[in-house]
Every structure is written in structure tokens, then in C-alpha cells.
Design a protein around this nucleic acid. Structure first.
Lengths: 394, 394
DNA sequence: GAATAGATAGGAAATCTGACTTACTATTGC
DNA sequence: GCAATAGTAAGTCAGATTTCCTATCTATTC
């Protein structure tokens, strides 16, 4: 329901925005292709591109060749027009300080620097600032080149109250932290739940590429769920939809946390003779047995685990009816396709639903990559509508 | 991410659209108010309004008075610019023909005619056409005045396959039915699940007015769930999200249908000595006892029912974390605030979630009213973007 | 020589600003 | 109490501005 009104200046702004958006989406385009895509005339397209190159958002990256006539200029986004720092704040169990995974990317998504930190206890602001500074040092960039910092947090961010909630790392739940960071860094700062970010990564580089929407179930130390609606994530009222752990299991008073939470899985593994330090290790061990013994009857531990996961899956699938469900998190990753098949079997046996099930395709740090993707999107959106408001022709 | 590009014609179209949208939303506006809201200049606003009145979308409805200076003209939408027929197709248990509730509304939402039909078996097309014709007759309108027909169906509509699915009335599941109807009636035709439409009514005229989003749980003969995201409904992959009945209840192999479906409620009532023909009748009887006896301990039937409903509610609330959950359908309506309070108690006892719970505020036919609201929105949207494409200045 | 990329020039559509006319209210003066 | 006058606001008109498009032109490449 865009009910936008304005004058010829708005028109110009819209045409510039549209052109920039197309360049961001497609990577490289010639003037003729842009003309086709925007529907604008030759002179207008030229003029818009002149402005975009003038302010440094786009550049000529090369020339076509081969056909008759002059070689057309190929335009692309200027990768250095903006940079994004992504930080994954990890809850390292009982310690008061977080471990941090971090990456620095340019506007086209290239990763310019990446590092892991195991920081000594300190103020969150110091943690973030020094991390960003170190990333810039590694990439040989000035800190001012970073325009957006995206945080992945093991909790939920409530933008209304400007507070990170349900986070277990000291100092991070202070209201106003995010805007203080923005002021201190002189960038925009975004914070988002880690599972939601993993879902974003799954859409951009995983098994959910191109799907209309999907639900991602996270099985790790904790339990989580992200709901992708195609172009947005469904966030609950407090910024944390997908509190899967609270889904009741019948009227027993128990919930899914008691069934497929990290400790529950560990306990179940122990019952079946798998003694490991983490649930994913137990699952990995069970899977390796199965893989070795070819097509023997399923391992009873995995079978029971799959049945429990199927309960969680069926709850989500029945309520949302998504085009796809992705199993992710350390446990699901360790279980791989063996676990997936068992889950599918249990799921089909228990309900008439036929939702497709996939295991995450991301072997790298999905949360961090998702944070980078989300940060990129934020920066791109802000570039696009920076043109809508102010415009400074060279 | 509107990446719209175009020429001055687009600009004019946008300004007309914006003006029309504002008129539809606010009802009546003076030129000065429109100027303020759109940001357009005086001459442009005048010009746009001239066009809108020229094509018959808007009319001068009166004049201001009292202040100094000339009396400003008050503009409003022309109610007769479009008409919507809403039909609620009801599954009358074992019969092969449906009962139909129907209403005819004008563009401002006024109901011009309303009727109930208990049709003899016939082709769906005949059913719909004759119903629409009868509505027009009652309202004293030509059939050509109807621009959109909105169907409420006890099933789900799959627009991709142009098929109404999961419907138990003979002839209605034929692929292509909806587009055939559109051709036969010479209108646009929409079909939508009845519970979803009840949610739309709840947003427009019920307890969900103004909320950011909500989940509506439907307890009647069947079990349903609609998810309102603020400006859209969440539809599943097959057009039917909210197959609440399939949510598993633990690993027992049972699901919510076995817990709070119509037959289950009826059976539970019988166990507690309430023998009625329908579940809502049983609930109504139990509630009337409670109401009489003031603050006595809760009726055990209602208490158990509330606990079961709380399980359904908790599943939905945990996965979606909506700002509000509305209990609707015949059973919830019969239970009223008595049942609501019991559900809230059970819900709070079983989970840490604190989602607000409300009972539907609609005593009238929510499904039919929702169909009217949905039809109106469809017509309004199509009017608004009819201006975007073609435009015929007088 | 044919075809294409990009620039230039002229014209059309839509907007805005500022001045102008008209209509209504309120105050002042008799 | 009535009438003339001053002030304010609605809506139109005219000129300037912005932006875009069509058509033409030049230059380049195969």
C-alpha cells in the first residue's frame, strides 16, 4: 500500500533508487540492460548513472566486446561504497565474557577480514569497538569506512525498548546499549537473534535459497526456531518468536525443552550408552556407527531422537504449513541426512502433513554469515533510500 | 522494496492513487487536509480531485462552515463506485448442498442487503449467480454494479492451482471453479478460508482492532487457526496454514483434534454429565451453571476443557509469540469470559509465556462480515492501482 | 558498410511558487 | 441594531522549473 505522493524530484529519486537496487541485486549491468529493466529511456538512464557514479555508488567495471558497434560500458556497484562488520556474540556457558566471531565485508559481500576472539571480561562497548578496530586493521581499512555493525546475540532484541533480552552474558542486557554503540562507533548498529540470522544465511547460501518461505528449527545447546516469510522474518512481540522450548508436550506439564533440549538429548544418549560431553558429539558418534554398518536397522538412540524431533517439527508444520522445514544447529548438523531420513519417517508416520524436510547445508558459522548478510541488507536498504531523501548530484 | 521507475505519468498516477487511498482510509477530507497529508501543492491537489470526481470515484459531500473565508468543499469516496457481494458457503454436515449467508456492501462498507439461503442441490455456479442476483434485487441494484464477489469457504483456496481444497461440499473442489465464476459474473472473485475471514472481521470490528498482529484460534465443529501479521494473513503453502488439528500431543500419536475438536469436546461434556447435540450447547449449559452460582469452584468440565485449550494456545503462542491470541468459534463464544479466565489460568500455570488472551467480540456472523471486509479491501486495492495503470481524465 | 553505444536537442507532462479572485466572519462605527 | 470594513482562508491562474521522452546525430566496432 505505497501511497506515496510527490513532485518530479521524487521521480528522479525513485529512478535512482531503482537503478541502484538493480545493480545491487544483479551485480553488473550494462546501460542497455538497465534500460530494459527499469523501462527508462536512454538519456535518463545515462543521467541516472552519471549521478550514481558521481556520488561513488557505482563504477564502470569494464566493457563488452564482440558485437558490432562500440563496446558498451559495464556498470557495477562500487564495493568500497560501504562496509559492514558482523559480530557473533557467543555465550560461553559459565564465563561472564563472550567469545566473539567477527567478519568484515564490503558492499558486494566480499569478506575482507575474519577472526575469532576469546576476550577477557570487559564492557560490551569496549569489546565491540576493539573488535571492529581489529577487523579494520586486518583489512587495511580506516574505521570510518565501516557504515554498519551487525550483532548476532544469543537472545532477542527488542527495538522498542532498545534492549537485548534473554541474554546470559554480563552487561549485554543494559537498555540503550545498541544506540550507545551506534553513537560510539558512528555507524548504524543492528542486533538480532542468532537463530534468526542462521535462517538468513540459510536463505542466502544454504538449502533455503529461492524458497517462498521456510521454518528453521535449531537444535543445539538451546532450542530455537526462525520463521522466514520470504522477505522478512517473523519476530514475535518481544522480538523472539520461536520459543520452541515452551511448546507443551501434551498435558503432562512438560515441554519440548524436556524432549529435545540439549540436556535432554544428552540424557537420552546416555540411556543408550553414548557418553559424550555435548549432545552433538553423542549424535555424531551414533551416526558414525550407522554409516559404518550400512543398512542395518536404525540405531535406537537416533530413532528415539528422530521421533522427538518429529514432534517439534509437526507442531511447527501444522501451525505454519511452510513450504520447507530446515533442521539446523549442532545436533542436526551432526545427525546429517541419516537423522533427516529418520525424522521424515517418524514425521510421516505421525501426521498426514507432507512438509519437505532438509538439513542445513552450511558447514561454516551460519550465525556469523547470516549476520553479514543481514548487515549487508541493512546497508543496501539505507543506501537505496538515502537517494530518496537527499540527493547530491556531482 | 518498491523499486519503481517511470516518467511523469507515473507521478500523476501515484498522486492520484495516494489521494484515493487517503479518501478510502479517512472517509471524508477537505482539500486542505489532503494537501497536508499528501504534501502536494494546492493546484495539484485540485487537479487530482478534479480527475477523481470526473471518473466517479470521489464526490463533494458538503461544505465546511464557521471559520473565516470561503467554505471548503468536503470530499468523500463515492459509495456507488463499486459494490461487493460476500457469500459464506457453509458445510451443512451431511447434505450435499450448502447453506449460504450473503451480504451486499457498497464501497464505503455499508450493507445494502443481507440474506440467508438454504439452497436445493445445484451447481456451485448457479448457486452463486442466483445468490448475487437476489442480493442485487433486494438492494435495487443492477447486477453489473457488483465488481467483486468474495467467497468464504470451509476449506482452503489454492490460487496457483485455482482450486478450493479440503472442502466437503459437492462440486466445489473442481479446479477452475473460481475463474469460471469470474467469467460468468463478469467480476473479480476471491475465495478464502472461513477462519481466515473471521480473523479479518476480528481485526476490523472485533477485539483485534489496532493490534500489531494476532493469532485467532477457532473452536467449533472443526478446529482452525488464523495468523494475522498486521497487514496480511499468513497462508501456508497450500493456502491453509493453521491446521491446528494436526498439532501432535506428545508422542502418543494423538493430536489436538483428539483433544479439542468438536467430537472430543462433546465426548468430554458427556463424561461430565452434559448431554447436548453440539459442543457449543454443552459449553453454554455449563457456563450458565457457573454464572448462576457466582464464585463457586469452577465446573470440572469447563476446567478440563480450558486446560486442553491452553495446550493448543501454548503451542501457538510459543511458536509465534503473537501480541494477542483471540479465542473464537462457536465453542469459545459460548464459553465467553468464564472460559477465557479458566484458559488464562491454565495457560499461565503451564508455561512462562504471558500472551494476552481475548474472546471474540463478534456476535454476528464473523465469517460473512470478514468476507465483506476482505472483498472491500480487494476492490479498494484494485481501484487504487487501476489509477496506476490506465487513467482517463474527463 | 551495417549495427550499436552514447550524446544532444527539442518538446511534452507534471509539479511548484506566488499572485489573484472570491467568499465568509468578525469587528468597528454610527 | 444595522451596515460598512478589515481580515482570513479557499480555490484558480500564470509563469518558471524539473524531469522525462522521442528523434536525431556522431562515433565505434566487426
Amino acid at each position: 500500500m505505497t501511497r506515496l505522493a510527490g513532485s518530479s524530484k521524487l521521480l528522479r529519486a525513485m529512478n535512482e533508487s531503482a537503478t541502484l537496487a538493480l545493480l545491487l541485486e544483479r551485480g553488473t549491468l550494462t546501460r542497455a540492460e538497465l534500460r530494459e529493466l527499469t523501462g527508462l529511456s536512454k538519456p535518463t538512464t545515462s543521467d541516472v548513472l552519471r549521478t550514481l557514479t558521481g556520488v561513488g555508488f557505482a563504477t564502470v567495471i569494464g566493457h563488452t566486446s564482440g558485437g558490432p558497434g562500440p563496446n558498451a560500458e559495464i556498470y557495477a556497484i562500487n564495493p568500497s561504497a560501504a562496509h559492514v562488520a558482523a559480530l557473533s556474540i557467543r555465550d560461553v556457558t559459565e564465563t561472564a565474557h563472550p567469545a566473539v566471531g567477527a567478519a568484515l565485508g564490503d558492499l558486494t559481500g566480499n569478506v575482507l577480514a575474519r577472526a575469532e576472539y576469546d576476550l577477557e571480561p570487559s564492557d560490551p562497548i569496549t569489546t565491540v569497538v576493539s573488535t571492529v578496530e581489529d577487523l579494520c586493521r586486518r583489512a587495511g581499512l580506516d574505521r570510518g569506512a565501516v557504515t554498519h555493525v551487525q550483532l548476532a546475540v544469543p537472545g532477542s532484541y527488542d527495538p522498542a525498548g532498545d534492549t537485548i533480552r534473554h541474554i546470559d552474558v554480563a552487561g549485554w542486557n543494559r537498555p540503550g546499549l545498541v544506540s550507545d554503540l551506534a553513537g560510539r562507533l558512528d555507524t548504524t548498529v543492528g542486533a538480532e537473534n542468532d537463530v534468526n540470522l542462521a535462517a538468513i544465511a540459510e536463505r542466502h547460501r544454504g538449502v533455503a535459497t529461492g524458497t517462498e518461505g521456510f521454518a528453521l528449527l535449531w537444535f543445539g545447546a538451546g532450542l530455537g526456531c526462525a520463521i522466514d516469510l520470504g522477505d522478512t522474518l517473523l519476530r514475535g512481540v518481544s522480538g523472539g518468536a520461536g520459543e520452541l522450548g515452551y511448546v507443551p508436550v501434551g498435558q503432562s506439564g512438560k515441554d519440548l525443552q524436556d524432549l529435545v533440549g540439549g540436556p535432554a538429548v544428552l540424557a537420552l544418549a546416555a540411556e543408550h550408552g553414548y557418553h559424550a560431553r555435548t549432545p552433538e558429539a553423542a549424535v555424531a558418534e551414533a551416526v558414525s556407527h550407522v554409516d559404518g554398518r550400512a543398512r542395518t536397522p536404525a540405531d535406537p538412540f537416533l530413532k528415539e531422537l528422530a521421533e522427538r524431533i518429529a514432534v517439534a517439527l509437526a507442531s511447527v508444520a501444522a501451525i505454519l504449513d511452510p513450504p520447507l522445514v530446515v533442521l539446523a544447529g549442532e545436533v542436526a548438523q551432526a545427525g546429517g541426512s541419516v537423522l533427516r531420513d529418520l525424522v521424515a519417517e517418524a514425521f510421516h508416520g505421525a501426521t498426514p502433513l507432507r512438509t519437505p524436510i532438509a538439513v542445513t547445508a552450511l558447514t561454516d558459522d551460519a550465525v556469523l554469515l547470516g549476520a553479514l548478510d543481514a548487515g549487508l541488507r541493512a546497508v543496501r536498504d539505507s543506501l537505496i533510500d538515502s537517494l530518496r531523501h537527499a540527493l547530491a548530484p556531482a
